[in-house]
Write a protein that binds this DNA or RNA. Structure first.
Length: 232
DNA sequence: GCCCAGGTGGGTA
DNA sequence: TACCCACATGGG
């Protein structure tokens, strides 16, 4: 189990196609990326449905809407005050700096887009990479809590107190996924599927995991702490 | 009632 | 750099 391709093969065979990211447009994907922060996707779906019902899902409408109304619409996704602020900041920034064109934004080099997104409030590494990978079609791998947890339990990554663990894990996948961005998209989606089923915090061990038995929870799982690959 | 969910930002030593 | 903590709803 020393190559991302092995993960891909096992998980793909077990779960099949994931059809990610759920969303009808690039903007909707970006909205979902913010709404899902530390939030179950089910609650995000409720929020997006409510945004659609109120005709607030478009960038223009979201930007023009009173903060109170936007908050009410996304309430089900939790953290609704800050998320409403983040959404409007993003919408305003796209309008002000890219002429309201996501084409223009994502036409830039990956590193440039990523830096710009990270400079916005409420957009950290995972959210930026989700937007890049699924809204922009850029090869920027998404490292989320499930990714970290799975790699830890399978001994691929070691907890480390210093350094940029996110980048280390990202590089590990990037080096082994090839050029097909669709494969990058599928890889992350499969990891989330596996995480939800086999690698929840409350699942101590599971011999049915398609990647093989998981280590007992709590032995190496340190949640959101930084990580580095073993050779680091 | 308690734990968890596809994180991020701000504060402290 | 390395921890803390707030942020908030809905489901198991």
């Amino acid at each position: 189990m020393a190559h991302p391709g092995v993960y891909y093969r096992h998980l793909s065979r077990h779960f099949g196609p994931q059809y990610w990211w759920p969303g009808n447009s690039r903007w909707e994907v970006m909205v979902g990326a913010i709404l899902t922060q530390n939030t179950a996707w089910r609650n995000v779906e409720l929020a997006i449905a409510e945004l659609r019902r109120r005709h607030l899902l478009s960038r223009a409408a979201m930007l023009a809407a009173p903060a109170e109304e936007l908050r009410a619409a996304i309430r089900s996704a939790g953290f609704y005050r800050q998320k409403a602020r983040y959404l409007q900041a993003l919408a305003a920034w796209v309008a002000d700096h890219h002429g309201g064109s996501l084409d223009r934004l994502f036409r830039q080099p990956t590193g440039r887009v990523r830096a710009e997104l990270l400079a916005l409030p409420g957009i950290g590494p995972e959210t930026a990479d989700s937007m890049l990978l699924y809204a922009g079609g850029h090869a920027s791998f998404v490292v989320d809590a499930y990714t970290v947890r799975i790699l830890l339990r399978h001994g691929e990554a070691a907890a480390q107190g210093s350094g940029d663990g996110y980048a280390a894990i990202q590089s590990w996948f990037a080096a082994g996924l090839g050029r097909d961005v669709g494969r990058w998209q599928e890889m992350h989606a499969l990891i989330v599927a596996a995480g939800k089923e086999f690698c929840r915090k409350t699942v101590p061990r599971c011999t049915a995991c398609p990647l093989g038995p998981l280590l007992p929870a709590g032995t190496a799982d340190v949640g959101h702490q930084p990580f580095a690959s073993r050779e680091a």
